[in-house]
């Protein structure tokens, strides 16, 4: 078997230009997903009338269907809805104005939101009930108690899961090739088929994904060290 090592190297260099796309999809989906997930988790925890049924349905549907399906549903469904609305209200906005990557942002945010809602919920529930009671007892409002006391502690608890989800999203973002967004994976396919060197190109892609994953792990460790000071009792 012949492996063209120099070609792996040149593929690596070529793939660098696709890193921003992959990172953008991962970051946007995770941040929007975290926002959606937090709202959904709070709705479910506080059993907001009506909304908590909707929230529960959202979580079970999204978690019950593949991420690729979400992407395809958004890709084919959203334009129909948008164009119908535009016709209805006479907007000039058309679905063709949405960049391809926009579909990825929207659909992956929805996917991440469902998974992260469970992550956030477990984090919030892991914070001792006495903490919010103490916050109430000194006269805080629910908003203050959640924002200043509960969420900071919950975040420290859910950080490892969050890191896990981010890595999953990084790898899951490879699905965007189906809607012709050129991320690292799609670019490696292009390089591979143009040069007829599939194995080498995919090795290069694997190395980059691995590198990015290690980066996320390192970042997590750093953040964890910072915010968990109070747990280890290491400050003098």
């Amino acid at each position: 078997m012949n492996i063209d090592l120099p070609f792996i190297w040149s593929s690596l260099i070529e793939l660098l230009s696709a890193i921003p796309t992959t990172l953008a999809i991962t970051a946007v989906s995770m941040l929007c997903g975290l926002a959606i997930g937090t709202v959904v988790a709070l709705i479910r925890l506080y059993k907001v009338p009506l909304l908590h049924h909707i929230a529960a349905a959202y979580v079970t549907f999204i978690r019950g269907t593949p991420m690729l399906t979400h992407l395809l549903l958004i890709y084919f469904g959203l334009p129909v809805i948008i164009d119908a609305l535009s016709d209805q209200f006479g907007w000039s906005f058309r679905s063709v104005n949405i960049p391809m990557i926009g579909f990825a942002y929207i659909s992956f945010s929805i996917t991440a939101g469902a998974y992260l809602s469970e992550v956030v919920r477990s984090g919030l529930q892991a914070v001792n009930k006495g903490q919010i009671e103490a916050a109430y007892s000194i006269g805080m409002t629910t908003r203050q108690a959640l924002g200043r006391i509960v969420f900071p502690q919950a975040f420290a608890i859910l950080l490892p899961s969050l890191s896990n989800s981010t890595i999953s999203m990084l790898h899951g973002s490879t699905l965007v090739f189906t809607v012709s967004v050129v991320d690292i994976n799609a670019k490696s396919q292009i390089i591979a088929s143009a040069n007829w060197k599939f194995f080498e190109a995919f090795i290069a892609a694997a190395i980059i994904y691995w590198g990015l994953t290690i980066l996320i792990e390192r970042l997590t460790a750093m953040v964890e060290k910072r915010i968990n000071i109070y747990n280890r009792g290491g400050v003098t």
Partner: peptide, 17 residues
Amino acid sequence: RKKSAMVFQQYNLFRHK
């Protein structure tokens, strides 16, 4: 609640402060 303050059996100090 603002009229009173409470001292808890389990202390319930804010752990991250």
